[in-house]
Amino acid sequence: MLVAIASLWGSGCNKSDDSPQRATPLDFPKPAGWPDTRYDFASNPLTKEGFELGRKLFFDGRLSKDGNFPCASCHQPFAAFATFEHDFSHGFNNQFTTRNAPALFNLAWHTEMHHDGGIANLDLQPLAPLTAPNEMAETIPSVLEKLNADPQYQKDFARAFGSPEISTSTLTKALSQFMLMLVSADSKYDRVKNGSDLFNVNEEAGYAIFQQKCSSCHTEPLFTNLAYEKNGLPVNPDLNDLGRMRITGSSQDSLRFKVPSLRNVLKTFPYMHDGRFWNLSDVYTHYNGNGISLSPVERSFLTEFLRTLTDSTFLSDQKFSGGE
């Protein structure tokens, strides 16, 4: 009896430190030589339990209205967490999305999400697809109710965040922990950079062309400058998507879209914010007509270089797959 009381006092005064099932800290695998991350890890310290819970949520259809659309339905691991071979993705009630699902990796370096940068924090990101009527079509209270009714989830949240009660905040923090761990930095390009591999002659030639003609926007090592650029794409009148202007209201931002990373680019076709280009050849043709000349020979070298950005380790990493 006395022992029990003593332990109660201890936990009352020191909740976070004395919790019997304290979560296991997880190190963020920051690649050597990369810029500083931008996510506020102090507000959401990575833990093994938080990451695993985030993964479970990412692959759980219950986050959608009819159970059919987990995050992973549009963000597929084998497509670098884009939607494989789709310009638009499928959502609730046979609806399409209106933009191409972006690939998800190296998100700790991003401060704004979506093609138009409308979402100002990774933690806020899941709320958009979750509540979009043509995507997961849910409401936040309804999802929280479903999850809170599941005793296993309550245990999972208690292990990860110290309380079984599932809130908007802990739901999104768990998802962030999973998404933050999606680091893609083990392509052939990376191995060449760290001295453990060599480009062949064609890849080397492609890399030189890339540095000369592409890297001002697709800046290494992230292969994006994370800025909003206008690349000459005419507006699709069916969508009338003006990009960044939708967020800022400024005509200066009309038709500007966030530069996507070229990492895993061979796996993330079709291309552009609306998936209008099915393959790299279409993309080269577009740029060739918009101020970046690319001869047929340059195009083939460039493709050989871009293939070195495919991170097979990342694409097949079992710790990022649903497994259920």
């Binding site: 409308g118 806020l124 958009a128 979750l130 509540t131 929280l144 908007t168 905040s169």
Partner: peptide, 14 residues
């Protein structure tokens, strides 16, 4: 301020 209160734009943070 919980976004679950429905007083939050999810697609354009705020």
């Amino acid at each position: 301020l919980d976004p679950a209160k429905g007083m939050f734009w999810t697609w354009n943070t705020g």
